[in-house]
Design a protein around this nucleic acid. Structure first.
Length: 824
RNA sequence: GCCGAAGUGGCGGAAUUGGCAGACGCACACGACUCAAAAUCGUGCGGGUAACCAUGGGGGUUCGAGUCCCCCCUUCGGCACCA
């Protein structure tokens, strides 16, 4: 007997064997098997694996191994999200080239992943910073460009002074950069955008198709897309032909408009005030707004501030003259940047009107307010009956929304309008370490796409890394200066690179045909493997990556390049790994190194603990004692299986089946059922593992209390134990499997099926309750009818005694569970 | 402020369809083995002498509620002047 569970010897041994035998090599399309694409979010190669990665990939590995054993043709790939700022920052700080830095990090992290024994086919590894990948990222950009979905425009964009580049809306969190935390400022720059807004409605509608996604993520996406219905209404500026269009979700309140507000940055504002007495004050106000940070400017805490600009507009419904303001609380990039002020029915307008002494006119009667001229103390934003609204008086306001919109459409005063909170995706970055945007600028031909046969536009290697606020590529003359693909004349390249979220928006497609050097992907393979059956990753990507990937997939589908329109059928968002109640981070000094944990306890122990300590969606509190416990358990399995191997022939009898044998067989099959359901239906690996523990605890008892055991039943139990352990502790299971005398890999074994007949129990314990309180328990035949069970219970002496002096009102029987006697 | 999730022993967690609250593990205590310790094996382990009380608090529905309904509190996540 091998006494010791020597993980340090067996884990590397099997990792080597699996690698050499190509155990995880991905098969091609196989029509005899159902396919299963198991995907975990690929990591950014920051240098070292952290526990969050270990958790993510341990979960994925269980799923992949389990599905493989269940007979699926499984794709389980891994790669590297390898472009991005940290590499460039390292280059600036330490003088290492980003490429070198990234590649050495990849090597290190790949080694760490391999040491954990995850079942990846490394042959299909994808690295986004390699030309064989970014060539196709560039190609995909051009597909967007050629279909009018990529465009360059000058706009006030989010600029992070820390990262010295622009950011997408999604990357700004509470007015700060999501990466470095610096306060984001506005800059007027010409930038590349992808027209994700064209897909806003479909991205919203198709959320319904995502049955296998957590509601949490779907709601976040819904809120982010932020659809609203309302009307655009035209207000003429008094004394001119100029028209201002506002967007409102409350056309029913139009008779309550007592002022109008414009975003200060609107060009119209300057036009309207130029040469008027208001010009100076307006200029001052605009300048003040520009110096304010986004956080101060857009916080609900900030006091409303505005300025009358000397003009009036006419309410198209009643011809009233309304003063025109600019104010801090109106955003230029939502709706039309112009808002009609209805202080009685919008709290923001109410605050503004109160401050500047503007009229507050009630047009929708609040409940319980009889007087239509009542003084409000705050805006009434709920429903009510229309008043002070001309022909619409007396209508229900919900009705009036429709009727007023219809009326305005008929009279040409306005129209029904849908608006989205979602903005177009800003993809330009003024940085070096990203995929080049394959566009050149020619004096004669203007903006020209780089032809497909000239792709990729290579990133030059001899570049100076200085954080100047301009792409380092702009100073690389050999890169910038080129010839125009159209006319052959001198031209200049685009020097911005792409947001790395572009690279990660299609990597899961590249995995399906990673070696195709003639196309971004092989259509037949992509259509075979996609969509992903199970995607696993952190919830922090709920909006950014997951929304962008859905957008990419829909564009590819519309271009006829793929046959599916949603990339991820099921999504699992795993919780964080915590230590002492907070997220592990270097700055807090509460990190636990996966490498050290593996060195001390082995990969199987580390994985087992992480899977056992909490269900996957929840946060997980790291516990060194818990790791110790997982290690103890593996040792316990080890000793049990070895004692069986060694003692097999001394205590057996084949023919007879004792009650203990029968119970062993029942538990064997119950354990199979429990684990299968826990993985398949619920991803509850923690309870699956506890079922294995209970099974092991029973087998110890069975072994120690029965010197005579049925060898067939015992062998089945031990084989089953090792087999169901395989997805969770792949190395230990493999070693034990071979020690049991098998020569093929445990990971190629079919997942066991349970025998329903074995689960049937002859007798069950039931509870006797009196008025819902447990008073007794008894063993009865399992197949007894409900009526017989109730009768049987009432006949028992103990129960009769309990009933003395009581009047039975009712008896509630639940077969195999309980009998509740209700007494008075 | 709005949206969402969660609150169960000393701790991580379980209870899958309204049916024995606390599975499994950790920690702890005691015992066996040992010269001793570790490891291992075994026993106990929500509170209370008990009747009983206990799943954040308060109501309700039900024969029966951690689970369903209403109100409130706390923590965490997302959004935050989106007209």
């Amino acid at each position: 007997m091998k006494e010791r569970y020597d993980f340090a010897e067996i884990e590397p041994k099997w990792q080597k064997t699996w690698e050499e035998s190509g155990l995880y090599r991905v098969g091609d399309e196989d029509q005899t098997k159902e396919k299963y694409y198991c995907l975990e979010m690929f990591p950014y190669p920051s240098g070292d694996l952290h526990m969050g990665h270990v958790r993510n990939y341990s979960i994925g590995d269980v799923v992949a191994r389990f599905k493989t054993m269940q007979g699926y043709n499984v794709l389980h790939p891994m790669g590297w999200d390898a472009f991005g700022l940290p590499a460039e920052n390292a280059a600036i700080k330490h003088g290492i080239h980003p490429f070198k830095w990234t590649i050495s990090n990849i090597e290190n992290m790949k080694r760490q992943l391999s040491r954990l024994g995850f079942s990846y086919d490394w042959d299909g590894q994808v690295t986004t910073c390699q030309p064989d990948y970014y060539k196709w990222t560039e190609w995909l950009f051009l597909q967007f460009y050629k279909n009018g979905l990529a465009y360059k425009k000058k706009a006030a964009v989010n600029w992070c002074p820390g990262c010295v580049t622009v950011l997408a809306n999604e990357q700004v969190v509470n007015g700060a950069c999501e990466r470095c935390g610096n306060e984001v400022i506005k800059k007027d720059l010409a930038q590349w955008f992808l027209k994700i807004t064209d897909y806003a409605q479909r991205l919203l509608d198709d959320i319904d198709k995502l049955q296998g996604w957590p509601d949490k993520v779907k709601i976040m996406q819904e809120n982010w897309i932020g659809r609203s219905e309302g009307a655009e209404v035209k207000f003429r500026i008094d004394g001119t032909d100029e028209v201002i269009t506002v967007y409102t979700t409350r056309p029913d309140t139009i008779y309550g408009v007592t002022f109008m507000v414009l975003a200060p940055e609107l060009p119209l504002v300057e036009k309207l005030t130029k040469g008027t007495p208001y010009e100076g004050a307006v200029q001052d106000f605009i300048r003040k707004m520009q110096t304010m940070s986004d956080i101060d400017r857009t916080s609900t805490e900030t006091e409303k501030e505005g300025l009358f600009i000397g003009q009036f507009v006419i309410n198209p419904m009643n011809g009233e003259k309304i003063p025109l303001f600019i104010a801090n609380y109106v955003l230029i990039d939502y709706g039309t940047g112009c808002v009609m002020g209805v202080p009685a029915h919008d709290q923001r307008d109410f605050d503004f009107a109160t401050k500047y002494g503007l009229q507050i006119r009630l047009v929708i009667m609040p409940e319980g307010v009889p007087d239509r001229y009542a003084q409000l103390t705050q805006a009434w934003e709920a429903e009510g009956i229309m008043v002070n609204s001309g022909p619409f008086d007396g209508q229900d306001n919900e009705e009036a929304i429709k009727n007023i919109t219809k009326y305005m459409e008929e009279k040409g005063l306005g129209s029904f309008q849908v608006n989205f909170r979602l903005r177009d995706w800003l993809i330009s970055r003024q940085r070096y370490w990203g995929a080049p945007i394959p566009i050149v600028y020619c004096d004669k031909c203007g903006e020209v796409a780089v032809p497909d046969d000239e792709l990729p536009v290579y990133l030059p290697t001899d570049v100076e890394f200085k954080p100047t606020g301009q792409s380092p590529l702009a100073e690389c003359e050999s890169f910038v200066n080129t010839t125009c693909p159209k006319c052959g004349g001198p031209a200049k390249r685009e020097t911005d690179t792409m947001d790395t979220f572009i690279c990660s928006s299609w990597y899961y497609i590249r995995y399906c045909s990673p070696h195709d050097d003639t196309a971004a992907f092989t259509r037949s393979k992509v259509n075979y493997w996609m969509p992903v059956e199970q995607y696993i990753g952190g919830v922090e990507h709920a909006i950014l990556h997951l929304l962008y990937s859905r957008f990419f997939t829909k564009v590819l589908k519309d271009q006829g390049l793929v046959d599916f329109d949603e990339p991820f059928t099921n999504l699992l968002t795993q919780g964080m790994v915590l230590k002492d109640g907070t997220k592990m981070s270097k700055s807090k000094g509460n990190t636990v190194s996966p490498e050290e944990t593996v060195a001390q306890y082995g990969a199987d122990t580390a994985r087992l603990f992480i899977l056992f300590a909490a269900p996957p969606e929840r946060d997980l509190e790291w516990s060194d004692a818990g790791v110790e416990g997982a290690y103890r358990f593996l040792n316990r399995v080890w000793r049990l299986v070895y004692s069986y191997i060694d003692g097999l022939n001394e205590s057996v009898k084949v023919e007879e089946v004792s009650p203990a044998d029968k119970e062993t067989r029942r538990l064997t099959h119950y354990t199979i059922k429990k684990i299968t359901d826990d993985i398949n239906l619920r991803f509850n690996f923690n309870t699956a593992i506890s079922a294995i523990m209970e099974f092991v605890n029973w087998l110890y008892l069975y072994r120690d209390k029965n010197t005579v055991r049925n060898s067939v039943i015992e062998a089945e139990a031990v084989n089953t134990l090792v087999t169901v352990l395989a997805p969770f502790a792949p190395h230990a299971a493999e070693e034990l499997w071979h020690e049991l005398g098998y020569t093929d890999s445990i990971h190629k074994q079919p997942w066991p099926k349970y025998d329903p007949a074995a689960l049937v129990q002859d007798e069950v314990e039931i509870v006797v309750q009196v008025n819902g309180k447990v008073r007794d328990r008894m063993i009865i035949p399992a197949d007894i009818s409900k009526e017989d069970m109730e009768k049987f219970v009432l006949e028992q002496d103990g129960v009769k005694k309990l009933m003395e002096g009581q009047q039975i009102v009712k008896v509630v029987g639940v077969p195999k569970k309980l009998v509740n006697i209700v007494v008075k």
